[in-house]
């Protein structure tokens, strides 16, 4: 089903529930992988993805029919990810710095398997600040257009290009060490 048709279904209260199921089935994987790359752990990603879709359902009435559904969903998911990571950092401030906890999860969590080079790349990505990591993931893994990332993050295309360029440089430096 195309997004335009889905939006019509979602904005009509009579067809909202069936439309919502279609939305979940259509977007669950993209949102899951978007979240998973940010929080690393499968259980955290699972909880967060459920929270995100519940939030989408609660706010569907606020969605403007002329906006893009895909960027709206990503925007909610992205905000939820950052909120989750900030809360975790506040809670464990005295235990670890930067993304130390996420690096630990990378080596200890289930459902992660990569060779030495792939793990080093992931550790390098985890050295980036969370917002820059989000931008990097959306560009590198999800192959999104800068214009779409711009709508999701409310950041200019120029700033995104600069951020992505710096991220790539930092990762290259880390991998060379």
């Amino acid at each position: 089903m195309k997004d335009k048709q889905l939006i019509t279904q979602l904005l009509d209260e009579k067809s909202r529930e069936s439309g919502f199921r279609v939305l979940v089935e259509k977007y669950q994987q993209r949102i899951y992988w978007h979240v998973r790359k940010m929080v690393i752990d499968h259980d955290d990603a699972d909880d967060l993805v459920q929270d995100i879709f519940v939030k989408i359902y609660s706010n569907i009435g606020k969605f403007r029919a002329d906006a893009q559904l895909y960027t709206w969903i990503y925007r909610i998911a992205t905000n939820e990810c950052l909120t989750f990571l900030n809360k975790k950092k506040r809670r464990f401030l005295f235990l670890s710095s930067d993304n130390e906890e996420l690096v630990d999860k990378l080596t200890s969590s289930d459902f992660i398997s990569g060779d030495e080079v792939e793990m080093k790349l992931q550790k390098a990505i985890l050295t980036l600040p969370d917002k820059q990591r989000l931008i990097f993931n959306m560009k590198y893994y999800d192959e999104m257009k800068y214009e779409d990332i711009s709508s999701i993050t409310d950041t200019s295309v120029g700033a995104l290009k600069a951020s992505y360029h710096h991220a790539v440089k930092k990762i290259e430096q880390f991998v060379r060490l």
Binding site: F20, Q28, Q29, R36, I40, H42, Q50, I112, E118, Y140
Partner: peptide, 30 residues
């Protein structure tokens, strides 16, 4: 993930088959 060669993360078998039902149940509970 669609970018298989870049992705080291995996999910339990059948995870995406069950996820919509879990989400719908959460929405109903809410």
């Amino acid at each position: 993930d669609k970018n298989t060669n870049k992705n080291i993360y995996k999910v339990p078998e059948g995870y995406f088959d069950q996820l919509p039902d879990k989400i719908i149940a959460r929405v109903e509970a809410q």
